[in-house]
């Protein structure tokens, strides 16, 4: 386990110097503002379209936008934020393996376990900070223009999204432990995401899968209660731990 602190410092330094932190900060901030912004603009957009729609027989009378629309936009933006983050982090392990930059550190006695754990911690910290920054901005503007209390479970649904993101980070770490290029890591992580989404279309199965956590709409509209998510939360957390453990074992054996 020794080496987790120096590796952690190195990762933070790398995040800042390669400007990854800045890019992610801007992405999360903008996506946070975009959600209420689009909701605010929706009536205007309908107004502009109304002439065309009139000719087709669709008549629009005053469109009401509520806090719910803003939060639905927020939910739609989150996959984009997650995907951008996963793309940025897909080379965090493989770059070092292919360039051999880890050899001096490992041969000096720092452990591989520490290296993996430090990288995972940094990724999770970034996701946590970014997601809650995004949430905070949307929360502020939505409350500014409408009323947050009309939408239920906003914090809980964001927590579910956070856990789903953690699971995807663990998946990426798992693929990084044996893949030889960042493209393979990205392909593997993308395949897991895609398969989960497909499997989630099957109703009975979707209650158990991590994709259940991405279903914030039902929470906002109170058609599902918090307790409906607990099985998925436990399964996702368990899967994440298993993925990290197998990544640690695999990384311990791979040639660097």
């Amino acid at each position: 386990m020794n080496g987790i602190v120096p590796f952690f410092k190195k990762e933070i330094c790398e995040m800042i110097r390669t400007k990854r932190l800045m890019v992610l900060g801007i992405v999360f901030t903008l996506l946070g503002i975009m959600a209420p912004w689009l909701a605010k603009l929706t009536p205007k957009m309908y107004e502009m379209l109304s002439d065309d729609l009139d000719q087709q027989g669709v008549i629009i009378k005053d469109v009401k936008v509520t806090a719910l629309d803003s939060w639905l936009n927020f939910e739609k933006n989150l996959p984009m934020a997650l995907i951008i983050m996963l793309i940025i982090f897909c080379s965090i392990f493989t770059n070092e393996y292919s360039k051999g930059t880890l050899i001096p550190l490992i041969t000096k006695g720092l452990s591989r376990t520490g290296m993996v754990l430090a990288k995972v911690t940094v990724m999770m910290l970034t996701w946590t900070a970014g997601l809650w920054l995004c949430f905070g901005i949307t929360c502020f503007y939505t409350d500014f223009y409408w009323d947050n209390s009309t939408v239920s479970g906003i914090a809980f649904s964001t927590f579910c999204w956070w856990l789903f993101g953690v699971f995807m980070i663990c998946t990426e770490t798992f693929f990084s432990s044996f893949a030889s290029s960042s493209a393979q890591v990205l392909a593997g992580t993308g395949a897991v995401y895609f398969i989960l989404m497909l499997a989630g279309a099957y109703k009975k199965l979707s209650e158990l899968l991590p994709v259940r956590l991405t279903d914030s709409t039902s929470l906002y509209k109170s058609s599902l209660s918090k307790s409906d998510y607990f099985t998925a939360i436990i399964i996702t957390a368990a899967l994440s731990v298993v993925l990290i453990l197998s990544a640690l074992i695999k990384t311990g054996k791979r040639s660097i």
């Binding site: 975009m34 912004w37 605010k40 503007y141």
Partner: peptide
């Protein structure tokens, strides 16, 4: 009414 959101968006996007 739009300014509180418009200003940060413009500032962030332009600086980027």
């Amino acid at each position: 009414e739009y300014l509180p959101m418009l200003i940060p968006i413009v500032v962030v996007q332009l600086s980027l």
